[in-house]
């Protein structure tokens, strides 16, 4: 009887998280998979992991941060095909895309299709962790929230994001080496 009540409560909580975060999870899945079938597979895997981890949610962080953690960790999953095939896919309508290209001249240029394609290619050259950081930035998370998801300090996130931006700028502006 107690188990049944517990399961019902867990289902209710799961449904609530799903209704509030379904689109968020789907966006994360789209970042890593161009193929809709792969997106669906990853979406299911994220839900499986949310279900498995639900008992560990203590409310220490916002539910959205918690969901991002599960989604990013799933994308780094060691057993699934996602890890091997992982690519960061951004669309022209992706919110906060300009936050990567915060240089004014580049921001203008990124509207051009050629540069967008180049950006897409460069994003896919990033390491797995850098892709995760960029995907969270594209989601509009603050540096602190990104730090909470990845498990590093806010200054460390800033350094890493700065470095990624510098790398992208260097490559998009013709390969001039960026000095720190």
């Amino acid at each position: 009887m107690r188990t049944k009540t517990y399961t019902l409560k867990k289902e209710e909580h799961f449904n609530q998280i799903l209704s509030e975060n379904s689109e968020r999870i789907q966006r994360i899945c789209r970042y890593y998979n161009s193929n809709t079938e792969d997106q669906k597979d990853m979406y299911q895997e994220v839900l499986v992991n949310i279900w498995k981890s639900l008992d560990n949610f203590r409310g220490d962080s916002a539910i959205s941060t918690w969901v991002y953690r599960v989604a990013v960790n799933t994308s780094l999953s060691f057993t699934g095909k996602t890890f091997k095939q992982m690519k960061l896919i951004v669309n022209t309508d992706t919110q906060n895309l300009s936050s990567i290209l915060d240089d004014e001249s580049l921001e203008t240029k990124h509207k051009e299709e050629a540069q967008f394609n180049q950006l897409q290619n460069e994003l896919n050259q990033l390491s797995v962790i850098d892709k995760a950081l960029i995907s969270l930035m594209l989601e509009g998370l603050s540096m602190k929230e990104i730090g909470d998801v990845i498990g590093i300090t806010e200054p460390n996130v800033k350094v890493k994001i700065h470095r990624i931006k510098a790398q992208l700028k260097t490559k998009l502006t013709g390969g001039v080496t960026y000095e720190f």
Binding site: K52, N56, R69, V70, N73, L76, D148, V149, I150, G151
Partner: peptide, 13 residues
């Protein structure tokens, strides 16, 4: 039974 994917990524790794 207790594999937790909701930990910060570094801890999970």
């Amino acid at each position: 039974n207790s594999v937790d994917y909701s930990l910060p990524t570094l801890n999970m790794l």
